[in-house]
Simulated assay, not measured.
Amino acid sequence: MDMDAGAFEALVIEELDLLPDDMVDRLDNVVFVVEDRPEDGSLDLLGMYDGLALTERTQYGMGELPDRIIVYREPHLAQCETLDELRDEIHTTLVHEIAHFHGIDDAHLHELGWA
């Protein structure tokens, strides 16, 4: 599948807007970023949470850099053949990375069917 960076970012924003309010309203000091691919150049990683999970924080205050949820464009496009598949995969990636923000690890995400 092929899609330029602007169209992909717009799709990520659309999918983010479709998430339940109670899932995104609790995201404090988090930015969503779209990048072409991970630093190692692989196409295996669809997204990444870069920050300190809520369950690991002792305090969080003013002056802290925001946590980041990164969605990688090229790996998504490499794994999806249709726009519907792409939407579903972006949705799953967003939920997965937001779960990491809340301290849910990959093992629990597998149990829930989100990894």
Rank of each mutant, 00 (worst) to 15 (best):
L11S: 10
L65Q: 05
T82E: 10
H91M: 03
L94P: 00
P75C: 10
L45N: 00
S42V: 14
C80N: 11
L83H: 04
D40W: 02
P66E: 11
M48T: 06
G113Q: 05
H76P: 14
D67R: 08
D50K: 02
G41D: 10
G113L: 05
V95P: 10
D2L: 15
P20M: 05
A107I: 14
Y72E: 07
D4C: 02
D44A: 11
T55I: 07
W114E: 01
D106P: 12
A5R: 04
Q59F: 03
R87D: 00
I70N: 02
A78H: 15
L109N: 04
T55A: 14
V24I: 09
I98M: 09
E64K: 04
R68Y: 05
I13E: 04
G51Q: 12
T92Q: 01
M62N: 15
V33N: 01
D88G: 12
V71C: 01
S42L: 13
W114S: 01
I104R: 03
V12Q: 10
V31E: 09
A7Y: 05
P75N: 09
T92V: 00
D106C: 01
I98D: 13
P20W: 09
E9S: 11
A53Q: 15
G113K: 10
G47E: 08
E111G: 13
Y60D: 14
M48D: 04
L86I: 09
H76S: 12
L94M: 04
A5N: 07
R87E: 05
D50C: 00
N29L: 15
A115V: 00
M23F: 07
R73T: 15
E89K: 10
E89G: 01
E39G: 01
E56R: 14
E89D: 12
E111H: 09
H96M: 04
I69E: 02
V24C: 07
D106A: 03
E39R: 11
N29H: 14
D105C: 07
M23P: 00
H110S: 03
L18Q: 14
G51I: 13
I70S: 07
H76G: 12
L11W: 06
L43E: 03
R73Y: 05
L27V: 13
E15T: 04
L45F: 06
F32I: 15
T93R: 02
D36T: 03
A99G: 12
M1G: 06
V31P: 05
E35Q: 09
I104N: 02
E15N: 15
L43R: 07
A53T: 14
G113A: 08
V30F: 15
H110Y: 04
E74C: 03
G113D: 10
V71D: 09
G47S: 11
L65S: 14
A53S: 11
E9T: 08
D28C: 09
